[in-house]
């Protein structure tokens, strides 16, 4: 039996590919994170705005509202409900240059999902300070 650790960190995984959400939840739970997965863009934005999370994994291609739109809303300087979570873009989609530059300004980290195993993702997250 694996020892479940706890690090008291809350993480919101915004991901519409159910199986990926499942794998990430498993690895994150093992490392002590409390995980919630949401697959819908609008619902995800609402959940982000509760500001209950330490980390947000944000997929860019999700239904109803893109991850890029969510990022823009969360980092809008005029927002009345600032979010303190670190935002990590997790995507498999290559972005156009203009969007890449915007993401660089607004997100805290960026990764291509296909390049990491779930455990490597957990390691990566531990480096996001």
């Amino acid at each position: 039996m694996e020892q479940e650790q706890t690090n008291n960190k809350k993480i919101l995984v915004i991901e519409d590919e159910h199986f990926i959400g499942e794998l990430y939840t498993r690895a994150l739970n093992k490392n002590g994170y409390t995980v919630k997965v949401i697959a819908d863009g609008i619902e995800a934005l609402k959940e982000c705005q509760t500001d209950r999370y330490d980390l947000i994994l944000l997929d860019l291609m999700i239904p109803n509202m893109t991850g890029f739109e969510i990022l823009n809303k969360l980092k809008d300087p005029s927002t009345t409900s600032p979010v303190h979570a670190k935002i990590i873009i997790t995507t498999n989609l290559e972005q156009r240059d203009e969007i890449k530059k915007e993401i660089e300004k607004k997100a805290d980290a960026y990764l291509i999902k296909a390049n990491l195993t779930p455990n490597e993702l957990v390691d990566f997250l531990s480096q996001v300070k």
């Binding site: 990926i20 794998l23 498993r26 498999n92 290559e94 296909a114 990491l116």
Partner: peptide, 18 residues
Amino acid sequence: AIHELRTPLTLLKGYIEV
């Protein structure tokens, strides 16, 4: 096209690790 290829690659990578 690459996005579509990477999604199963991500999953396979994950399952192999598990």
